[in-house]
Design a protein around this nucleic acid. Sequence first.
DNA 1: TCTTGACTGTTACATTATAACATATGATAT
DNA 2: ATATCATATGTTATAATGTAACAGTCAAGA
Lengths: 175, 175
Amino acid sequence: MIGPADIEASTQPATDAGLAFRRHDHSNCCGGLIARADELAAERGLKLTPVRRRALEILLEEHRALGAYEVLERLAGEGFGNKPPVAYRALDFLVENGMAHRIARLNAFMACMHPGDDHTPMVMICRACRSVAEAPAEPVAAAVAESAASAGFAVEGTVVEALGLCSACRARGEV
Amino acid sequence: MIGPADIEASTQPATDAGLAFRRHDHSNCCGGLIARADELAAERGLKLTPVRRRALEILLEEHRALGAYEVLERLAGEGFGNKPPVAYRALDFLVENGMAHRIARLNAFMACMHPGDDHTPMVMICRACRSVAEAPAEPVAAAVAESAASAGFAVEGTVVEALGLCSACRARGEV
DNA sequence: TCTTGACTGTTACATTATAACATATGATAT
DNA sequence: ATATCATATGTTATAATGTAACAGTCAAGA
Ligand SMILES: [Zn+2]
Ligand SMILES: [Zn+2]
Ligand SMILES: [Zn+2]
Ligand SMILES: [Zn+2]
């Protein structure tokens, strides 16, 4: 059964930290985010072409970090090109336009859960199930900015990734 | 001329954020850190063998992120093996033992400026000169831990990297 | 219609990283 | 002393990740 919290999760970005780690109406959250991506593209005059749209769907279907070659494999299986640039270009488009994030530590990509926010998220990566989730990064960004400022460093971007065990895996007794 | 601040920088870890970005007595700071690495190895029963020691020196000589193959090239030029595992093994040893850090965003490595602290640092990466520096990460780590906790996520490690312009490059009018 | 620019696809290659096995070396233990 | 063992080094070969450069497609605008 799908409870109110699940519905809320797909519409209340500020409260969905760890969504990927919880039970939720997945088809709903995916559909909602694809719709949101279409809106964004329309608003901004971007072209969410078939490959790009499908790449985003693939990321959304997983709530998990996927390597470019994993995405490529699926795209190729659906009739798109099967050469690396096909995947990298689609993924780069999604990242540049805030619809996906690159995870440096994993050399992988994930769908963004708040497209349009123009945020640099903090990403949590579960080492047991490899699922990933975004968490609010404002406090972290502030701390980074402060440390950097005292070194005279002008921050233009950040990579903040936490590695560990998600709540589901801990509940399941994972060590 | 080498001023007091430069001396201090190599012996007062808590105050050296951004050291790499400033003028300082470089041979002094390198020598001191090699000596510190020797101490650490002795304390912990680690073997800082010739390749490992040389790999660390190479990183120290640069105050800059070096790719594994850059390190390999130098090692090979000095009579060590010239196959990738030679560099990767030395670098992995240094990272595992807190004498160097891996920079996820650059697929590169840097010498640690506070070996023995057992810290996960925040790293600042200058896009103009590619120099890197560590900054205190406690406030950042705290913010990360707090965000993660509200998602039920147990943090075991973090990657915190800031990209931007260092003070030297800004002073030099870099945009 | 004809350009033009953006998108897709391909070839070919560059860069980063690891598995697996062989050899050397130094520290026990007999 | 010498056999044994663990650790470290070196090699071959290959995997995984990422890009440069160019050719064909297609739709929007001159
Ligand atoms: Zn996001
Ligand atoms: Zn998990
Ligand atoms: Zn350090
Ligand atoms: Zn710089």
